[in-house]
C-alpha cells in the first residue's frame, strides 16, 4: 500500500469513527447510570436535521452543532419523562423514540433535502500535522474529531477519578443504596440521559454538517444502533469504545475504498455495503459468547426502572 493511500484511509477511518465515539460515549454514561436508551437512532436523526437546518439558515456550523445538541437533549428529555418520571418500560420507550425521531426528522427535513452546505475546513494543528504518514490523517481534522478525543479523556477522568463519576456508577449499580445514602437517583439519571441525548445530537450534527455535508432521509443509516452495540462490545468501558469505533470506521471505509477503487472484483457493491452491519453482529457474538463477560460488566440496574419510596 502506498503512503498516500494509507494516510487517506487513516484519515477517513478517523472521520467515520468519530460520530460513533461521540454517540457511544454519551450512551455509555446513560447506561452507567442504569438507563438503557434505545432511541439513539432517533436522537441522532433529530440532531442531524436540526443542525443542518440551523447551519443552513445561520451560516454558522457551530450554531448548528449547538442546535443539534439541543435537539438531541429535547428528545432525551422526552425519554426521561416517560421512563424516569412515568416509569414506562425503557425498551419500549427507546424503540418509540427511535421510530418517532427518525419520522420527525424526515418530516421537518423535507424542505432541506435539495440543499447543499459549504464544507467546513479542517483545523490543522501546527507542527504535529507535519508528522509523516499519520500527521495529515490525525491532526488536520475537523474540530469535532478533537472534541471526541477530549470527550474520551474527560470521561475517563470523570468515571474513574471524580466523585461525581463514582456517584453515577453507584446509581447504575444499586439505585436503592445510592438513594439510601441520600443521592437524588432520579435527578442523576435525568442528567445522564440528557448527556446521552446531547452527545447523540452532536454525533448527528457531525454527520449532516461536517461529514457528508447534506441532509437526506435515513442518512443516519443505523449508526445509532451500531453505537448501542459498541457500548455492549466495549463492556461499558470508554477505551474499548474508542477501539471499537475506529474498528467500525475502518470496516466502513475499507468497503468504500474497495467500491471506489475501480478494482474490477466480481463482488456486488451491496454486499460490501452490508459489511459494517455483519461486523456489528459478529462483534456482538464474540463479546456476548461468554455470558459472564456481560453479566460481570453491565451496570446491575441497567434497564430496570427505579422509584424511590419517598
Amino acid at each position: 500500500m502506498d503512503a498516500n493511500l494509507f494516510t487517506s484511509m487513516l484519515f477517513a477511518t478517523v472521520v467515520a469513527g468519530t460520530p460513533l465515539i461521540i454517540v457511544a460515549l454519551g450512551l455509555l454514561v446513560s447506561e452507567r447510570a442504569g438507563v438503557l436508551n434505545l432511541g439513539a437512532e432517533g436522537m441522532m436523526a433529530m440532531g442531524a436535521v436540526t443542525a443542518f437546518a440551523i447551519t443552513h439558515h445561520s451560516g454558522s456550523p457551530w450554531l448548528g452543532v449547538l442546535a443539534g445538541m439541543s435537539a438531541g437533549m429535547a428528545m432525551a428529555l422526552l425519554f426521561g419523562v416517560l421512563t424516569l418520571t412515568l416509569m414506562a418500560n425503557q425498551v419500549a420507550s427507546g424503540l418509540a423514540l427511535a421510530i418517532f425521531g427518525v419520522g420527525l426528522a424526515a418530516f421537518v427535513g423535507k424542505p432541506y433535502e435539495a440543499v447543499a452546505l459549504q464544507a467546513v475546513p479542517p483545523i490543522r494543528i501546527p507542527f504535529i500535522a507535519d508528522i509523516p504518514l499519520i500527521g495529515e490523517a490525525l491532526y488536520n481534522q475537523q474540530l469535532l474529531v478533537y472534541f471526541s478525543w477530549a470527550l474520551f479523556w474527560g470521561l475517563l477522568w470523570f468515571l474513574y477519578r471524580s466523585r461525581a463519576g463514582l456517584v453515577l456508577r453507584a446509581v447504575g449499580e444499586s439505585p436503592a443504596s445510592a438513594h439510601a445514602i441520600g443521592y437524588p437517583v432520579i435527578r442523576i439519571r435525568y442528567l445522564a440521559v440528557l448527556f446521552g441525548g446531547a452527545m447523540a445530537g452532536i454525533g448527528g450534527a457531525f454527520l449532516s454538517v461536517f461529514y457528508t455535508p447534506m441532509w437526506a432521509e435515513g442518512m443516519v443509516a443505523g449508526r445509532g444502533w451500531i453505537a448501542l452495540a459498541l457500548v455492549v462490545f466495549a463492556t461499558w468501558r470508554p477505551l474499548r469504545v474508542m477501539i471499537g469505533a475506529y474498528l467500525f470506521g475502518g470496516v466502513m471505509i475499507t468497503q468504500l475504498f474497495i467500491q471506489g477503487s475501480g478494482l474490477q472484483i466480481d463482488f456486488p457493491s451491496q454486499f460490501l455495503s452490508s459489511l459494517p452491519y455483519w461486523a456489528t453482529i459478529v462483534v456482538l457474538v464474540v463479546i456476548s459468547r461468554n455470558v459472564n463477560t456481560i453479566r460481570l460488566n453491565s451496570p446491575l440496574s441497567l434497564g430496570k426502572p427505579y422509584r424511590p419510596d419517598a
Partner: peptide
C-alpha cells in the same frame, strides 16, 4: 452465543 436479539435483528434489516 447470548447475542442481544434487538441489535442483531435490527442490523439484519439493513442487510
Amino acid at each position: 452465543f447470548n447475542a442481544n436479539e434487538i441489535l442483531v435483528s435490527l442490523m439484519l434489516v439493513y442487510v
